[in-house]
Amino acid sequence: METLGTYALVDFIPVEPEVYFRLFARHNLSVWPSQLLAVPLGLLAIWFLRQGQTRIPGILLGLSWIWVGVTFHLMLHAELNWAAKYAGWIFVVEELLLLTLALPARPRTAPRDRDWIRMWVGAGLGLLGLLLYPLLPLVTQLSWRETQVFGTAPDPTALVTLGCLLMTDRFTWPLATIPLLWCVLSGATWIAIGWMPGLLLPAGGVIFIGLALWPRARSL
């Protein structure tokens, strides 16, 4: 441990930036056209949460995490980075945790008692992950092929999940721990690689923490 301080962030990244971006391109090609299905399903999850329902969002988010964990981390990323296999299994654990959202919920909270700030900011983070994240190649030097889409790439999946968790008060922290951990790991990777748009995810994580810690409105 005494030697940890002698490492730079980049020393933990075993690939060149070009290879990391091409990883997304190769993955996009291998799972095409699941991206076309994933985004509408993400929108559906947000719509159900807006209605106060958690069962279908829990299933949809869970499926997206296991899909990313297996097809991205375990099948492709792990050949470049030995740590990715652990990330893959952590994504599978998050899938199992998210399925608990699908368990029978307590009666819906009355609309007047709902926390509208969390609801709207959560939906905003979700829409950011679903609609803006895939557009990031437009503002960078990346190819469209290297885009990151919810349900197939880890960062937008984590961002949408955090947004969805803000929209519900069920199991917030246990379910948010792994997405927040991914915010830290992925943010560090993007800093080391020098791709600043990647910091959108950790920024979303900070917003999530701020709002999740904010005292909830009391029932009248």
């Binding site: 990244i13 690939v15 060149e16 070009e18 290879v19 990883l23 050949e79 470049l80």
Partner: peptide
Amino acid sequence: WQSFNVGSDRPL
């Protein structure tokens, strides 16, 4: 280190 870690990416 890093330079030859390109996985199964054939062109690389």
